[in-house]
Structure formats: structure tokens, C-alpha cells
Design a protein around this nucleic acid. Structure first.
Lengths: 304, 304
DNA sequence: GGTGCTTACGCAAGCCGTAACTATT
DNA sequence: AATAGTTACGGCTTGCGTAAGCACC
């Protein structure tokens, strides 16, 4: 038994598919199939019960796979400990984040990390959509809101309410809304996520709750909504976390400040496997640091 | 990295020698040497610092080797759990024990085990000498007294005092000694262990301590001493544990019953590696059971 | 019919044993 | 001189990719 084979078993169990596991490990499905067969023969155990279309671990398979996870985790940590202090980070980290988080948080952070660790490669996969971490072999993603995939694990990076924002120029030209309903007469900038435009904005003041159905002249991703808002194209409904820079600098101002949107959590999301190379842990820690600093600025701004 | 390679590292560390490790794993020294080199290259770490005559783990090597032990242990237990209930014991267990223990305790036990588990093979290595468990790849040995090799771990099976015994016929013919000194006029049966005859017997009564230097007409191993004693050839100084059968049956009787020899521990001794196949654990448990039963008979006999 | 697992086959790399070599005691 | 580790080389095994086959949607 090789560690590589253990990783294969874990990946198959995680993805639920030999083909996806093969892709992640840069193998062919044929190789994976053969490897599983070989492993099962060696062990004298059936690890996966499979038809051509479904695949799930057997009872014993779960025991073995859990062991493989432990072993890989132990091994990874040992290598980190044994060779960690001497060499810088090396290898590739696959990150995925929403557009705005990518450009505001990750971009400069990645530059800093790669400068500090010349052997480190970072692949940034920018998407507002919930990507399939397993399918794309993402090491670490940031996501807004709760996640529903139980095969993932998450860590909260920040918590921040949605706020309505617009540029001073826009408000000069179109006036300042004073009730949620008055938004209907404004140019509202909505997000277009997962092929479904987000068309209703929910906000509340004390016990009041308001839902406004938006007809949007411009609809894009989070990054575009912010840029458009700064450019005076309309009112955006964004996480405070994403627009704290502009609010601090005054290029955006908060609209309807008495009304707050949902408070969204920003999470770091990992494939559930416990074994993470040092490079992933380090990058995760750096992201958490940046987000914590940014969240502190949000707190300060709200309390000002 | 393969589990087999991990085992190799552990064995090298245990035995302190590539050649011995090679022998245990049925490889050539060349293969071991090449494997170590390969592993070190793969890991980018030096595991063993070595000249042609000495070999010891590096700092990082110790970390890696400890990890390998953990991994092998975890893996072994997992396999036991995953396939344990379905199949009987299989494979080979190497045992080593003193002569008398072998013939009185292990012999019938091994027969029972092999009958119960047809796929089990047992290799019994009988010796009164302290064998090199590592060198001979012994899975489990029993030994009297404390052990001095820190790379081994031990479990106490029984504790029993040495006693002086002789057959009734012998005592009829030669008389019953009434003091330790009177042993000098008797035919005493000594052991010949590790090429050095054991020539002094120590015993005590209350606070008194007596050391008697023996001139022995017959000198052999533990088994022979017992048989000679039964045959009326003289007085033996044996662990009660070894002669409980004869004392119960009356074929031997205790001499100088007020005087007790050292209380010796009987230990099961294992190579320190933590990973033990089920077969070894099962055999160890069976031996412990037998010894416990026998020890209980010793207690009962002393208290009679 | 398409997707995903499996089988067949050829090739390349890995790994072991034999044997000669080197260094240490 | 003897012992332990290393290097060199030939052969066998392992493991992968390509390509074709097969079963469940």
C-alpha cells in the first residue's frame, strides 16, 4: 500500500467518482479503476461497491478510508515538522473566491505570498458561483453565506451586514431614497449569480422587514456592481465587507443607513479531508488575517 | 511512500542495522540501501546518518520514523478491524521462550492455537539464553527477570519465587537439608545459562540472607534441571512457576520451605514497535491467560 | 446515446538480486 | 581481515496511458 493509493481512495470517497478523482490526481480513469481493483485484491476487501453509474464505500471501505485520511494527515504534518523550518512554501495552492473578494482581498495577498515564497504557485479561480471544490480540486475557497455541502468544512472569516451604497454623484443627480419603497424609483444594481438574477432585496429596521423587488438596468457580478456604484450608475446592495474601502474614502456613501440587510458570514471553505499541506494552512491563515483586519475596519465604521 | 518502506525504516531504526533489517524483511542489503537512498531523495531529508560501520537516525529521521510507527500501527489495527471478524488468524508468529516454559506452557498452547486457526504458523525458538529479538525477528518472547534492552517492551505474565525442590526418593536416600549451608553436602542441579554456570544460590528467611556456592554434579538448562530433580538426581533451585505441576503431584517436594529465593518476574517481551498483527496479539493474550492460570495455582500452592 | 467503470495491450519506470567495490574497525 | 554499506547492471514486475468494450442511466 502506498500513500498515493491512500490519497486515491480518499479522493474517490470525497468526490464519489473515480473519474473526478482521476482528474484531480492527473490520472486516467483506467488507472484509477485498475488501482482500486489492485488495492482491493491486496487487502482482500471490497472498498467500494459500484455499478457503472454509482459508487459508494462499503462498510469496511469506510473504516479503511478513515484510516487513510488519518495516515495522510499524520504523514503530512510529519513532513511539515521534519522539513518545515528549513524550506519555504512550495507547490501549488488552488484558491477560489467571489469576484470582489478576489480583487480586494486576495489579489494583493497573493502577490505578497508569492514574493515571500518564490517556490509557491497560486491558482486563483474567480467566481461568484458556488464552485464544486471537489470537482475542481480547490484547496481553499471563500464563500458568502451558509454552505450546504456536508463534505466540506468551513471556518468563518468575517461577519458583515449587507448595506445599500451609492456614489455622492449619483445621489446628487437622482436624490437620496428615504424609504425602502422609494428604491423602486432608483437605478439599482443587481447581481447575476448562478444564472438567476437576484431580484429581491431584503432589509430591516428594528422589527420592520421590507422586501423590495428590483428592476435592474445593470446586472453583473459583485465586482461590477461595486465599480458601477462608484461610477455613479446606481445603488448597490453589497456586503459592507466588500465596500468598506469606498465608504471610508467617501467614494461611496451608505443609503438608507437605518436599514440593514441580512448579515452574511464570509467563510473559508475546505474540502473535508483533514490533511492539508503547510502551504494551504499558511495561505488560509494569511487570508484569515486579512479578513479579520478588514472586518475590524467594518466594525469601526459601523460604530463611528 | 509505501507502507513497506515505512516498515523498512522502522526495522532499520529498531535493529540499528540495514543488514539485519534486510534479513528480517527477506531483502538484500543492497535493496535496503537503495531503498533508504530513494526514500531520502523523495523526501528531501536525510533519515539516517551513516558511515559504513555505524548508523543512527537524524533529528528529522526520528520524527519520520515515529510517524511511520504510528502509521503502521494505525493501518494494522484498521485491517484487523475491517477484515478481522471474517477470517481466522493467518501468517507466522515467531515465539521464543526458555526451555521449561516452552515445554510446560507453550507446547500445548501452540497445538491448541494451530488447531483453532489452520492458517496460523508458529515458529518456536527454544532457548534459555536471552535472544536478540530484533536480530531473529522474534514477535514475542518470554523471559525471566528484568530486561535491559530499552528497545524492547515487556508485560509481566507472572511473579513467582525460586524454590528448592527434590524428589521424595532423593530425600529418602540423601536426607533432608535443614539449613542453607547443609546444601553443600548435597547434589545440587545448576543451570548453565549464557555459557556461565550459575554457581551461587541466594535465598532468604525473614531478614536473613544466605548465599550458597554450589559445586554441581549436573549442569544443564531449566528443563533438564527439573527432569533430573524428578529423577532423583539432586536438588534444583527453580522458579515455583516451573515446578508447580510436580509440587502439586508430589513428584517433587519443596526443600527448606522456610527459605525463599528471589522472586522472579516472568515477562512477555516484544520488539518495541507498536504495530502488531492480530495474530501476535492473540497469541500473546493466550500465553498471558495460561500464565495467569498457572500463577494462580502457584499462589494457591503457597497459601495451602 | 452518453457517461462512467472496466478490460486489453504496449511501454516505461521502479525495484530487487547478484556481484564487485569501498570504507571502517 | 572482516563486516557493513554502496554502486553497477540485468531482469522482472508494476503501473500508466491509449483505446476499445460494456453497463447503467
Amino acid at each position: 500500500m502506498k500513500l498515493r493509493e491512500m490519497e486515491l481512495l480518499v479522493r474517490i470517497a470525497e468526490t464519489g467518482s473515480m473519474t473526478l478523482a482521476a482528474r484531480q490526481l492527473h490520472l486516467t480513469p483506467a488507472a484509477v479503476s485498475a488501482a482500486v481493483r489492485r488495492i482491493e485484491d491486496d487487502l482482500g476487501l471490497r472498498i467500494f461497491e459500484r455499478t457503472t453509474r454509482t459508487l459508494h464505500p462499503t462498510e469496511e471501505g469506510l473504516v479503511v478510508i478513515a484510516c487513510c485520511e488519518d495516515v495522510l494527515d499524520r504523514w503530512q504534518r510529519t513532513l511539515d515538522e521534519a522539513k518545515g523550518p528549513r524550506v519555504g512554501l512550495a507547490g501549488t495552492v488552488h484558491l477560489s473566491a467571489p469576484t470582489d473578494t478576489t480583487y480586494q482581498v486576495l489579489e494583493s495577498l497573493v502577490v505578497a505570498l508569492c514574493t515571500e515564497h518564490p517556490a509557491l504557485r497560486v491558482v486563483l479561480s474567480t467566481s461568484d458561483m458556488v464552485q464544486h471544490l471537489h470537482r475542481d480540486a480547490i484547496d481553499l475557497a471563500t464563500r458568502y453565506g451558509a454552505l450546504h455541502d456536508s463534505t466540506l468544512s468551513a471556518r468563518t472569516l468575517a461577519v458583515s451586514p449587507r448595506v445599500l451604497v451609492a456614489s455622492p454623484a449619483y445621489l446628487d443627480q437622482w436624490g437620496i431614497p428615504d424609504t425602502p419603497q422609494s428604491l423602486l424609483g432608483h437605478r439599482c444594481l443587481t447581481l447575476h449569480l448562478a444564472n438567476v438574477p437576484a431580484v429581491s432585496w431584503q432589509m430591516h429596521r428594528g422589527d420592520e422587514s421590507h422586501t423590495v423587488h428590483i428592476e435592474s438596468p445593470l446586472c453583473g457580478d459583485g465586482f461590477l456592481a461595486r465599480r458601477w456604484a462608484v461610477a455613479g450608475m446606481g445603488i448597490a446592495f453589497k456586503s459592507l465587507f466588500d465596500v468598506i474601502d469606498e465608504l471610508e474614502s467617501g467614494s461611496l456613501v451608505r443609503v438608507l443607513p437605518d436599514y440593514a440587510g441580512d448579515t452574511l458570514g464570509i467563510h473559508a471553505v475546505f474540502p473535508s479531508r483533514r490533511f492539508q499541506p503547510t502551504r494551504v494552512r499558511t495561505v488560509a491563515a494569511a487570508i484569515a488575517d486579512r479578513c479579520a483586519a478588514r472586518a475590524a475596519r467594518c466594525q469601526a465604521w459601523l460604530a463611528r
